[in-house]
Design a protein around this nucleic acid. Structure first.
Length: 511
RNA sequence: GGCCCUAUCGUCUAGUCAGGCCUAGGACACCAGGUUUUCAUCCUGGCGACGGGGGUUCAAAUCCCCCUAGGGUCACCA
């Protein structure tokens, strides 16, 4: 039993033939206002995976009824964001489908008709109360420490009286349409929370259609979900309290409510609903910083769900294969940026070098280090540059600043303080560097990293000195950085001329 | 404040439905070692939790009740 409500006097009429759609249909219904929130991404992922994992249909419907806040750009961003995550939809504003249109603003007529039918059936009523009166009532209730609630002033109006006032004079008295909430209670089985119960006494006779004739959210969602044959509704916990209103509406419409599942909220470090207050909430922010897609998906999946409790790293296919709504956590999940970053780094470490090179190239180009043509022309060199950084970066965006030394002019290298400090630890560094340079420019040179690296070590050993005595000043001269990739690799990346020039500059600098 | 939801390491979580296999497992972070030319990676080890109180039971992280704490929601927004 999904939705039960006791004492339903007259609920037998049907506006539309009872839906016979028994197949699995889930949807995501975002409002195109602003950026693509991570919470939306996770909800989309869970809905999508649920459908994909059991041969259901996944629908994208755009809830753009708030015309003043909705924008086409935002809708576009949602499409792009979801696709970026690897989510596709079988029906939607851009791909069409049997229940077209998929943009809520284009469906208003149907909703209004449905509302009218409810009015005719006596399951809704006109309310002529002015906003001023409503405010007064609410203030009085608050003064008496009562829960603010509509006092049902217009609930008892006869149909004749209601019709008369609506029709006359001239344009008629303005009104809203309210849903008549029956006595009793609504109990339903939430797929993640179990049995949830709401007493109808707690529910207002809520507004279905505004003064201006436009239907409100709770009415529109249900109306659309009915039209589209949605069988399962998985959404954020903030919607839990809307559920009884919606179930009552399904019943008034003579429809079977879908099954509901309310996902735990994603929380910020302040333990409140994730908001810009405590960090980035927009998918775009993470994309821009270079979080790999797989890491974003993986991390989002981990917010409220676990594969087996042991495995943290898995891909989308695995998620789809194993995801079930009943396994999701009930408690809110605090967003942990550290783990997110780690996951991103781990994902990068598992990429192939060519793939990583492709992923990182736009960031390099963006920073003006190379042009797209450069990257193509020097592909082999670029991949070597990338390979050396693979285990040192966590985000694609970390790459450009780390390889900057390889793009600077030889006399314009930026020296880190710590690098210089390391370089100055040894008295005879200048002489050693000079010797090394001479050797490198002559017999020591090799185009093979392994060979060159081995030869460099041998060179040090032959002199009976410790590795750092050569390598620290050398690293400082070559890159100006205290840490970093293999030095033979650095030498090869720079080439003999540049490496030599930097070593000589380093000798002078350190003198 | 009313209503609703929730409660395992600092964080994400496994275990809870079908009580014993849990002296509670994994991951991030942190700390200590090891590998390494540096940094990073990697490896090893450590730290670290069943919110509190009552029950039920031979036995409770697991079932029940109360308390406490946190969150959500109370729009002619969605």
């Amino acid at each position: 039993m999904r939705g039960v409500s006791s004492s339903a006097p007259d609920r037998s009429f049907t506006l539309h033939p009872r839906s016979t759609v028994s197949d699995l249909r889930v949807r995501i219904a975002p409002s195109p206002t602003g950026t693509v929130h991570l919470g939306l991404c996770r909800t989309a992922l869970f809905n999508w995976a649920y459908a994909r994992g059991r041969g259901g249909t996944f629908v994208l419907r755009v809830e753009d009824t708030d015309r003043t806040r909705s924008t086409a750009e935002s809708e576009q961003a949602i499409h792009e964001g979801l696709r970026w995550l690897g989510i596709d939809w079988d029906e939607g504003p851009d791909v069409g489908g049997p229940h077209v249109p998929y943009r809520q603003s284009e469906r208003i007529e149907g909703h209004v008709q449905r509302a009218q039918a409810l009015l005719d059936a006596g399951l809704a009523y006109r309310c002529f109360c002015t906003p001023e009166r409503l405010t007064q009532v609410r203030e009085a209730q608050e003064k008496r420490k009562e829960t603010p609630r509509y006092d049902r002033h217009c609930e008892g109006l006869s149909r004749e009286e209601s019709d008369r006032r609506a029709a006359l004079p001239v344009a008629g008295e303005p009104f809203v349409l309210r849903f008549r909430v029956p006595e009793g209670a609504t109990v339903f089985e939430d797929m993640v929370r179990g049995e949830v119960r709401f007493d109808h006494a707690e529910i207002d006779d809520w507004i279905m259609v505004r003064r201006d004739g436009t239907p409100t959210y709770n009415f529109v969602v249900v109306s659309d979900d009915v039209d589209m044959g949605i069988s399962h509704v998985f959404r954020g916990e903030e919607h839990l309290v809307n559920t009884p209103k919606q179930i009552l509406l399904y019943e008034a419409l003579g429809e079977t409510p879908p099954r509901f599942g309310h996902l735990p909220l994603m929380l910020g470090t302040d333990r409140k609903k994730l908001s810009k207050r405590t960090g980035d909430t927009a998918l775009g922010d993470y994309v821009a910083k270079g979080y790999p897609r797989d890491a974003v998906v993986n991390f989002l999946c981990l917010q409220g769900w676990a594969l087996d409790g042991e495995t943290d790293v898995f891909d989308l296919d695995t998620f789809v294969k194993h995801f079930d709504i009943v396994d999701v956590q009930k408690a809110g999940a605090v967003f942990d940026p550290e783990k997110f970053r780690w996951l991103a780094g781990d994902t990068i470490r598992r990429m192939s070098v060519p793939d990583l090179a492709d992923a990182v190239a736009p960031f390099v180009i963006d920073e003006g280090l190379m042009t797209a043509d450069d990257v193509a022309a020097r592909r082999e060199w670029f991949e070597r540059l990338v390979a050396g950084e693979q285990e040192r970066i966590e985000l694609f965006g970390d790459f450009p600043p780390r390889v900057r030394p390889f793009f600077e002019a030889d006399d314009a290298v930026t020296y880190e303080e710590k690098a210089e400090k390391n370089a100055r630890k040894h008295e005879d560094r200048a002489a050693i560097l000079a010797d090394f340079d001479a050797w490198l420019q002559g017999p020591g040179w090799s185009d093979d990293v392994e060979a060159l690296g081995a030869a460099m070590k041998d060179w040090v050993k032959e002199r009976g000195i410790k590795f750092p005595i050569l390598f620290q000043p050398l690293r400082c001269a070559l890159t100006g950085m205290a840490g970093g990739r293999d030095l033979a690799d650095c030498v090869l990346l720079l080439g003999p001329e540049s490496a030599g020039a930097r070593i000589r500059a380093g000798i002078e600098r350190l003198a």
